[in-house]
Each structure stands twice: as C-alpha cells, then as structure tokens.
Computed example of a mutant assay.
Amino acid sequence: MNPKWKIKSFEALSVVELYSLLQLRSEVFVVEQNCVYQDIDGKDVKALHLFGEYEGEIVAYARLFKPKDYFENASIGRVVVSQKCRDKKWGYDLMIQAIKAIHEHYNETKITISAQLYLQKFYESLGFVKTSEVYLEDDIEHIEMKKEA
C-alpha cells in the first residue's frame, strides 16, 4: 500500500499536519544528518506543501515554490522520507508527485533544485541534470540541478 498524497498551501495546513511535517523535517535534517541549521526559514508561508500519509502519519514531504520564490525557476525543496519508510522507495513517488504538482499548480516545466550531492544519481533518474559545481549548504555538499519537461 502507498501513501495518500495531499497538497496544501501553508494556510490550509492543520496545526497537526504542520507539527507533523516540521517534526519529520527535524527528525531527518537536524537529528539524523547531525546538522544544526534554521529549518524554519520563513519560506514555508510561500510554499505549497506536498505530503504523503501512511497509517495516519506523515512519512514523506516536499515543499514546492513558484518561479522567483526561491530560484529563477519553480523549485522543489525539503524533500524527505521517514527513515522507517525508505525501503519502500517512496522518495521516487514523492518526486513524481512534486513534478506533477509544479506543472498543475504553477503551469511550469522548468524546475531547479539544490540537491545533496549523494543523491545526484537519484535525481538524475528523474531527469534532473547537474548545473553547478559542488557547494556547501549547512556543511553538507550540494549541487544545483535542473529539469525541463
């Protein structure tokens, strides 16, 4: 069984949904990756929030931006799958849903992401191409990648 996918504006998120998605982001990006950084960065209010619920819990999440809110192109960020669900390959499903949502909500075909370097092959499998040298973001190696549908 797969997660049930939902997409909501910041204002449409329930308090419980917001708490759960922030908890998931903190669990992975701060604790698991041992990275002290400001996750709550003021950009959530501009984003669309895509998340997958499974057995009553948010297990996958990404935030989506229209062009010029983050990059020149539309963008996808804070892509995360709960550690306990990574064996289910829902990261791929999450990105397919995110790309589709960018098209549907923003009518955009050009997408830019700031990807953690170790996930380069994963994003290439979705059609993204490396467009920058490696750079550090919060002491983690990243690359910029772009996709045109």
Results as ranks from 00 to 15, higher is better:
Ser9Tyr: 03
Phe10Leu: 00
Glu11Lys: 14
Glu11Asp: 14
Glu11Tyr: 14
Glu11Gln: 14
Ala12Tyr: 13
Ser14Arg: 09
Ser14Asp: 05
Ser14Glu: 02
Glu17Pro: 00
Tyr19Thr: 01
Tyr19Gly: 01
Ser20Arg: 13
Leu21Gly: 03
Leu24Lys: 10
Arg25Pro: 02
Arg25Ala: 01
Ser26Leu: 06
Ser26Ile: 11
Glu27Gln: 15
Val28Met: 01
Val28Gly: 06
Val28Tyr: 00
Phe29Met: 08
Phe29Tyr: 04
Phe29Leu: 03
Val30Cys: 09
Val30Lys: 05
Val30Pro: 03
Val30Gln: 04
Val31Gly: 04
Val31Leu: 01
Glu32Asn: 08
Asn34Tyr: 12
Asn34Ala: 15
Asn34Ile: 14
Asn34Trp: 07
Cys35Ala: 08
Tyr37Cys: 14
Tyr37Trp: 06
Gln38Thr: 10
Asp39Cys: 03
Ile40Pro: 00
Ile40Phe: 01
Asp41Phe: 08
Asp41Asn: 04
Gly42Cys: 10
Val45Ser: 14
Lys46Pro: 11
Lys46Val: 11
Lys46Gln: 15
Ala47Gly: 08
Leu48Val: 03
Leu48Trp: 11
His49Glu: 04
Leu50Thr: 00
Leu50Trp: 02
Leu50Glu: 02
Leu50Gly: 00
Glu53Ser: 11
Tyr54Met: 13
Glu55His: 13
Glu57Asn: 13
Ile58Met: 01
Val59Gly: 07
Val59Gln: 08
Tyr61Glu: 03
Tyr61Ser: 02
Ala62Pro: 00
Ala62Trp: 07
Arg63Lys: 00
Phe65Trp: 01
Phe65Asn: 03
Lys66Val: 04
Pro67Cys: 03
Lys68Pro: 11
Asp69Ile: 06
Asp69Leu: 10
Glu72Trp: 13
Asn73Asp: 14
Asn73Met: 10
Asn73Pro: 05
Ala74Met: 05
Ala74Glu: 04
Ile76Asn: 00
Gly77Val: 05
Gly77Thr: 04
Arg78Lys: 07
Arg78Cys: 02
Val79Met: 10
Val79Glu: 09
Val79Cys: 11
Val80Leu: 02
Val80Ile: 14
Gln83Trp: 10
Gln83Glu: 14
Cys85Phe: 15
Cys85Gly: 06
Lys88His: 12
Lys88Val: 05
Lys89Val: 08
Lys89Trp: 09
Trp90Ile: 04
Asp93His: 13
Leu94Cys: 00
Met95Pro: 06
Ile96Met: 11
Ile96Val: 13
Gln97His: 13
Ala98Gly: 04
Ala98Lys: 02
Ala98Pro: 01
Ala98Ser: 11
Ala98Phe: 07
Ile99Arg: 09
Ile99Glu: 02
Ile99Met: 08
Lys100Tyr: 13
Ala101His: 06
Ala101Arg: 05
His103Gln: 15
His105Met: 07
Tyr106Gln: 07
Asn107Lys: 15
Asn107Ser: 14
Glu108Pro: 05
Lys110Ile: 08
Ile111Gly: 02
Ile111His: 01
Thr112Leu: 06
Ile113Asn: 09
Ser114His: 07
Ala115Glu: 04
Leu117Lys: 15
Leu117Trp: 11
Tyr118Phe: 12
Leu119Ala: 11
Gln120Ser: 12
Gln120Leu: 15
Lys121Phe: 10
Lys121Tyr: 09
Phe122Gly: 00
Phe122Leu: 05
Tyr123Ile: 03
Tyr123Leu: 03
Glu124Thr: 00
Ser125Cys: 07
Ser125Asn: 11
Ser125Pro: 03
Gly127Ser: 07
Gly127Met: 02
Gly127Asn: 07
Gly127Cys: 05
Val129Ala: 10
Val129Asn: 11
